[in-house]
Write a protein that binds this DNA or RNA. Structure first.
Lengths: 245, 245
DNA sequence: CGCGATTTTGAGAGCCGTCAAGATACGTGG
DNA sequence: CCACGTATCTTGACGGCTCTCAAAATCGCG
């Protein structure tokens, strides 16, 4: 945890169109709710499956991944967390974590105390409401993911997270509109989509040959996002500023 | 919606060990929050994917299923709802539904007004907290489901919902410990697990030949729940009274 | 420049899907 | 109570999507 933390007053996320702003009272509370800032290197596990943790986090900068590891080593990625996303809340409010949260890039997190969560609900129903909304959004994302893994072909499956991550990253101004730095290996795609690494590689080639996108050097380039969206057969998402804490 | 509704004072769920009781103040609020009761026949869609709905529901009696239907007709079941589970909240707090909720049996639901939700957060932080907890639990269940579909073999996959539904139903006193009325067809299993109906049928036979359970006449019989749990390789769940609204 | 991580490619096997048809159970009306 | 239509379950054959195994090529980093 570092001293030179980002003051909430000057939170870079608040300035982005994607996120809604706080009221003065809410901002004051969040400032006190935030107990510190955590910066970890790429590859670090921030929250560990099976462990208890006294903190809740919001991603301030970087990419994280939530995943479950089975006893025999098989892994399943649940979701990716981008700036503005909370992690540590989802498992369940006070039980042990059911999944691991790992940094995919160098990662900066705002740290909140779990003990203060009740206080948030008691004194700031608006923020509590926002938090619940965020959890329902997470549930929706995982549900969509489940639909993909359960019912779509390999080609459709791969296209979905490319489009999805690109769209989410763009709304956070992480992309210039066509290119995006994407810190995922093909193994990540495999563990996300329930496919083998080899099959991911071959299917990825087919999709790139179709011109839907281009992956290289940890970068994605999407020439036509609408075409990619149509290929995934996923409903396009509407845009309205979303809350964050 | 019927007139002879179940009064919250005499809610049959409150009496079960599985659910925690309300404080007097909470009970009063929930009584006013509940605007009616809805009883529908087996097969009825209570909430429709793509539609808006002014209500939130809690299952009072019966089985429901939450599922997504793709444009070409492929279906993916997200989860099953049993007495005490909320439906209609998850999609997202005020947007259109992203999935359908359908009655698997004759189904009775408590009806709550979405407009009052804000009031709940403003005046009863305890209930708001419970509601958030319920959503995180749903997210956990869907996450576990995703792990199953993404990373487990057909045999492991099928065993999981049998164990899971049996355990959940038993905690609601719907089973005598060995037998349970389970209103699922093999097609439901297929749509739940991302497998074909034919393959479900053949795998189901193998598992029954192993003696893990027996399905017939819409009944499951599980001779040894622990053995089944071990086979699924899913972590057993601890028991503590959970909230409901 | 050298080593580990990641990507790529090929071959062969097998799990699972599709197609098809028959058997059984269930609900409804006569 | 029986007849009949529909839903559900069962079984077999066959094809293909995806897996595993294996090895080479390329990339990334110190």
């Amino acid at each position: 945890m570092r001293d030179n933390r980002t003051p909430c007053d000057a939170c870079p996320l608040r300035r982005k169109d994607h996120f809604r702003d706080f009221s003065d009272s809410e901002l004051d509370f969040v400032k006190s709710f935030k107990t510190g800032e955590l910066t970890v290197d790429k590859g670090t596990a921030v929250l560990l499956q099976g462990a208890h943790n006294a903190h809740i986090y919001t991603v301030l900068d970087g990419w994280a991944m939530r995943h479950v590891t089975l006893a025999d080593g098989r892994r399943q990625v649940l979701n990716y967390a981008l700036p503005g996303d909370m992690v540590g809340l989802q498992a369940s409010l006070f039980d042990e974590m059911h999944h691991t949260v790992e940094a995919l890039s160098d990662l900066t997190l705002c740290v909140f105390s779990r003990d203060e969560l009740w206080n948030l609900f008691a004194t700031h129903p608006g923020l509590a409401f926002d938090m619940t909304w965020l959890v329902t959004q997470e549930e929706k994302l995982i549900g969509d993911h489940l639909v993909s893994v359960g019912r779509r072909s390999a080609e459709e499956r791969i296209a979905y997270p490319v489009w999805h991550l690109f769209t989410r990253a763009r709304s956070r101004d992480m992309s210039d509109g066509r290119k995006l730095a994407l810190p995922l290996t093909q193994q990540h795609f495999a563990d996300t989509l329930g496919l083998s690494l080899v099959h991911i590689n071959k299917t990825l080639r087919k999709l790139q040959d179709k011109g839907l996108f281009r992956l290289s050097n940890s970068q994605v380039e999407v020439p036509d996002l609408d075409a990619l969206n149509e290929f995934t057969a996923a409903p396009a998402v509407e845009f309205s500023p979303r809350p964050f804490i």
